[in-house]
Design a binder for these strands. Sequence first.
DNA 1: AAAACGGGGGG
DNA 2: CCCCCAGTTTT
Length: 352
Amino acid sequence: MTSRLTAREATHFREKLLRWYDENPRPLPWKSDKDPYKIWLSEIILQQTQVSQGLPYYLHFIEAYPTVRDLADASTDEVMKSWEGLGYYSRARNLHAAAKFIANERDGVFPDDYTGLLELKGVGPYTAAAIASFAYDLPHAVIDGNVYRVLSRYFGVYEAVDTTIGKKIITQLADQLISRDIPAAYNQAIMNFGALVCKPKAPVCHSCPLSNRCGAKADGSIDLLPIKSKRLIRKQRYFHYLIIIDGDNTYIEKRGVDDIWKSLYQFPILETSGVTPITSLQNWMPGYNLHLNKPKTELKQTLTHQEIHGLFYIVRDFNADTLPDSWVKKPISSLDTLAFPKMIRTFISDYF
DNA sequence: AAAACGGGGGG
DNA sequence: CCCCCAGTTTT
């Protein structure tokens, strides 16, 4: 399936959109100059993240790591701490890896074309197009959630956009629509337009400069588009955390497994498949008879594909002979400087 | 092609 | 409660 537009259709869309953007600019700090480092950083932070949520993190990163070399020279723990609370932590790990790659293998010089950008860890088609256009004025069309929505509505795309065919249709449309003269402005324009006018819910069609030729508007299918086919299944998990009080110290470990929250810290953990609180460590440390009091606190955190139930047990008389190698004894006061998942950070703040 | 990966905000 | 967010990587 191909979606070819006439030059007239494309020009109309493009010019209406650019005119709207002229009248509705959105000043953001990373747009003030064309520093690819700042643009890259902002784009990674904004992946699946709203501007309002990512902005404080961006400001912190720029201050803590003014250049890609500063970021490359930071420790993993420091970078993870800077990212704490923002979610999708692979972004932080990939960001750090890419910074080291640029600083050490490329002498601090950013790739300056789409293909080169794509080789950076954490940079996919969207981010490569964004950097290529914003930093280098190259004509690569960004395709993000806004673009899927705007184009599927305007051009009446009823193919689900989360399928190969649906993505291809949107991509072909986007590639025909982007301005060859001012690709950066065009990309900014369509994303802002999607965020402010052609919104997911309650789009502002009455003041939309494109509504007179909008396919979805014409057949009343605005709230049906874009169509998505996949539905979400959420798994329940039960994490039992041992808060071992040893004077002014406690024990923590770093999550290194292939699972959520990799590279963040946690208290010693036992996972069960059911809700029932545990009362001993028999299944994990056979022969060690320790009675666990009922959890001091229970917290729940909902992630995209799982719901985590955190049960926090206070243990004051822990004296097992041997401890797992991964456990590290730390002063309770030092926990502030390490990165923990949101739920654990909440517990620490409330309890200590 | 599908699943996994966080956390916050809006209706 | 469900959907969405300036998506990418892994399976």
